[in-house]
Nucleic acid binder design. Sequence first.
DNA 1: TCAACTAACACGTTTGAACGGC
DNA 2: AGCCGTTCAAACGTGTTAGTTG
Length: 355
Amino acid sequence: MKQQDFQLNGSTPPSPSAAHSFQHGSIRITLENSELWKSFHKIGTEMIITKHGRRMFPHCSIRLSGLQPSVSYVIMVDVIPVDSFKYKWKKKQWEVAGNSEPQPPCRTYIHPDSPAVGSHWMRQSLIFQKMKLTNNTLDQHGHIILHSMHRYLPRFHVILADSPYTVRWSPFQTFTFPETVFTAVTAYQNPKITKLKIDHNPFAKGFRRGGPRSQHERPSSKTPVKRLTKVRKTLCSSSPDLQRMPSTSQAEAKQTSVPQTLKGGHHAAWVQELDSSESLHTELLELQECDFSCEEQMVPSSTACQPNRFPLPSGIKDPADPLFHAPPPPLGQQQGYHGNAADWSQYPLFSYSCW
DNA sequence: TCAACTAACACGTTTGAACGGC
DNA sequence: AGCCGTTCAAACGTGTTAGTTG
């Protein structure tokens, strides 16, 4: 896959054309399936959330470099709100539908290999394929809890720690990619997104045109062709830009065979421990004093969480996003910029962990 | 009435146990 | 006994759709 990297520092805006790799200090992180993400982002990425948890597609797949080969790291992902609005899909585009709802508990997904030494992390790409999103605020499975019709951004954390127990006190660095912004939905709104998902996700192969049978062609379907199916058909025949693209998902899936440093039982023990650690759940992040241009940022002590007042991180600009009509304040000024301390200061880190 | 949500469904993929051959 | 490749069923993940909820 074609990749462009750029070096990030606090004062130099990156080139808008190279927004899918970040470097903090010596650590560099690259979004492996950036092109796929961008093809979704152009349309307005949507992620289904369900009560029992739904995987993300595209997956978050990253490559790390610049780690100390023999030092242990924990790699985490969390998902933060992009803004303080709720959206609705109206007349083929997203519109603001009011203020966001109070944010659910912020949870963090720890890569199952964690902790592992730098050489391990750098050996192959990391795929957060099993991370699941849910709208069930009472979820007991450790899935990431989101609100439907809200916009979110995944964050990747590289933490210098040899155990999830110690991440609170460990130096960490945080990375984001603007093209991974998505809207959480309980049912797809934009039929173009549905088509892209079907074309690229192997699990949706059964719905591909020219595939075995589409839903409305099955014998069991006794009802007239529904609206979405109609739209999908129209799109398939009329949109050249939505013609089937070369699938990357199979290749992605095959990259997941990362040697395990720890097996299931051990992981489960950690989950339990972390779940029961009330302090960790409720520890909130205070980054106001942190300088993101520094190579390391210390996991802070507790502070108050005010999730609804998250200012738009400046890296979240959607320059090619005709589908979103967010009211002022305007989206950020720099694409691919990791943001300053204030941007990220009001969202908790490491408040929950799961596998 | 309508938008958002849920659950059941059919279909395809993934996973892992069982088996046989070497 | 150990390794490797194949087979197959169960589990899982997917979008679709009818029905429910507010």
